[in-house]
């Protein structure tokens, strides 16, 4: 062994060490940004819970869940979340009545009937529809859809749940269509060929073979749509009237959980006041609702997982 060789080896080792050290450092850095998702989730839960706790010390949970009046801004204050939930459920229900049939038909059509060329044109259009900001949809609901509905049903007030519900439905059609279509396209070709070989028409194949086979994905699409509709804010804030109202009647005006949060945030927020805390309690309710919907979706997906 000559010393020159030793030197080279030790230099190499030093370089190797440096290199390894740098690799570790980078990996650590990447890990940190990978953790951001967990951090955000924890932060959401922490902020909502810690701001809602003082609220629930002031208002009992039983009152919160059973009182049918929500008047935090009046002199006689009531904090019952039910009117906000009824508003949320009604608008979501109207949206689903519109979106489920339209979305399902679109998905079946794109997956089973449309030619490759047609699909290549339609899918980008649906994506553009997804990209339309909700505040624009809100304008649409207030200025175009509600006046149109008023021609059919003259007693309709300017602010109602029907118009925004319908517009919300149009908004979520592309979500249903694209997720359901993906799951239908994932059904193996052999199943279609089998059905055609038995003499089934396209329609029969689509309804009796493909739809049952893809049902888990289709249901997942509906559930995604529900959680979008429940969390939708601007359309209802603009066109449904922001007045809490315990009703399921679509022609009346009402507030949803989300539009209540917006209406409070637009006013003067006194940090730490009961109004401030109430929007966190409302937000927590909303988060729990969407969480339950997502868990339901997960369970449905697991139960009807594709078995072909």
């Amino acid at each position: 062994m000559n010393p020159e060789n030793d030197l080279i080896i030790s230099q190499r080792l030093a370089k190797n060490f440096q290199r390894n050290f740098r690799e570790r450092l980078i990996e650590f850095g990447l890990l940190c940004s990978g953790l951001i998702a967990i951090f955000i989730t924890l932060a959401i839960v922490y902020v909502l819970v810690s701001e809602a706790i003082p609220f629930f010390q002031y208002v009992s949970i039983i009152d919160f869940l059973t009182d049918t009046v929500w008047t935090p801004n009046y002199s006689i204050k009531h904090y019952g979340i039910l009117p906000l939930i009824s508003g949320t459920l009604t608008t979501t229900g109207i949206a689903l009545i519109v979106a489920v049939p339209l979305g399902t038909i679109t998905a079946i059509y794109l997956s089973e009937f449309a030619s490759h060329k047609v699909r290549e044109i339609i899918k980008p259009i649906l994506e553009l529809l997804v990209g339309v900001p909700t505040v624009v949809f809100g304008y649409f609901a207030l200025m175009l859809v509600t006046p149109m509905l008023q021609k059919i049903y003259p007693d309709l007030t300017t602010f109602n749940m029907l118009g925004p519900g319908i517009v919300m439905g149009i908004m979520i059609v592309p979500y249903i269509a694209s997720v359901a279509e993906d799951s239908m396209r994932a059904v193996p070709m052999s199943m279609r060929e089998g059905a055609y070989a038995m003499g089934a028409t396209r329609f029969q194949t689509a309804i009796r073979v493909i739809t049952p086979a893809a049902i888990s994905g289709i249901v997942a699409a509906y559930i995604l749509a529900i959680s979008r509709a429940v969390g939708e804010t601007m359309i209802v804030a603009i066109a449904a009237g922001q007045q809490p109202n315990f009703t399921f009647n679509p022609v009346e005006s009402a507030a949803t959980i989300t539009s209540y949060i917006v209406s409070v945030a637009l006013g003067d927020l006194e940090h730490g006041g009961i109004g401030y805390q109430s929007i966190f309690a409302a937000g927590l309710t909303l988060l729990i609702m969407t969480l339950l919907i997502n868990i339901l979706g997960h369970a449905v997906r697991k139960k009807y997982a594709e078995r072909y």
């Binding site: 990978g34 902020v47 804010t233 937000g283 988060l287």
Partner: peptide, 22 residues
């Protein structure tokens, strides 16, 4: 981490507003 990322995509946007406010 993966579950968290897909959950975050499903959280209503207004919840992020509340997070930011607090």
């Amino acid at each position: 981490i993966e579950i968290n990322v897909s959950n975050l995509a499903g959280v209503p946007s207004i919840i992020y507003g509340l997070l930011a406010l607090g």
